[in-house]
Amino acid sequence: METTKTQQPSTMKTQPQKEHNWLQKLVGEWTYEIEVKMESDLPVEKATGTESVRSLGGLWILAEGQGEMPGCGAATTMMTLGYDPQQQRYVGTWIGSMMTYLWVYDGGELDAAQRVLTLDSEGPVMTGAGKMARYKDAIEFKSDDLRVLTSHVLGDDGQWHQFMTANYWRKK
């Protein structure tokens, strides 16, 4: 007796959707300048570097950065971003050679104008107090060749505090 397998739609072959296409704007070679101000009584720290962003199947982007990180010296970073149609939100990760924590972006959405992608995460507080905090990163396209990343942390006062700004310029 011969058995036949039922044909089911494959989840392994997914076509990019408009949300995936938005991520492709990040693909390219970039230079960046970061400004960090962790505490109000500390001076602003600056650093520079480069970032190479490539597409993975039109569904994900992989962004590898090389340069300086304020307070850390030379660093390599890797960000992954994609869109999960089942959860209807952007997802991803961020790691850096200066720390052992895996940052997970577990909720992200575009604004109505489709210029700003806001990503939510949770991670250790930067002061080393051993506590966890909520973070919010926003990637805003000012033009096709200029994007700005701002990072915020939810403070003990219940307010979001911006602590980092990174300007990225597309290499010509």
Rank of each mutant, 00 (worst) to 15 (best):
G71E: 00
T76G: 08
M98I: 10
L117M: 13
Y32I: 01
T48I: 00
K25C: 03
M132D: 02
M78Y: 02
D84W: 02
E68A: 04
V44K: 11
V36H: 10
S55C: 07
I95A: 04
G108K: 09
A133S: 13
M69I: 11
G67W: 00
A112H: 04
E140T: 14
G128W: 13
Q24P: 00
T50P: 02
D111L: 07
L59T: 07
P124V: 10
T80I: 14
E39A: 13
S143R: 06
M98Y: 14
K37L: 04
A129P: 05
L42V: 09
G128R: 10
Y32S: 10
L146K: 12
V116D: 05
Y101F: 15
G73C: 07
G130T: 11
G128F: 14
D144F: 04
M126W: 09
Y32N: 02
E29H: 13
H20T: 06
T118H: 05
D145L: 10
K25F: 01
A47Y: 02
M79G: 07
H20M: 03
F141E: 01
E29R: 09
D120S: 15
T48W: 03
I139A: 00
T127K: 12
T93P: 06
G128Q: 13
V36L: 15
S55Q: 05
W103F: 08
T76E: 10
E140L: 06
E19V: 02
Q87W: 03
G28Y: 12
G58E: 12
L81N: 08
I95C: 03
V104T: 14
V91T: 12
W60F: 15
M69N: 08
A138S: 15
G28D: 06
D144L: 00
T77C: 05
L119Y: 01
R89H: 12
L62D: 09
G73E: 01
V91W: 07
L146S: 06
T48S: 09
R54M: 12
D137E: 13
G123I: 02
A74D: 08
L81V: 00
K131M: 13
G107Q: 10
E35I: 13
V125H: 09
G128C: 10
E29L: 07
L81S: 08
G82E: 06
R54H: 11
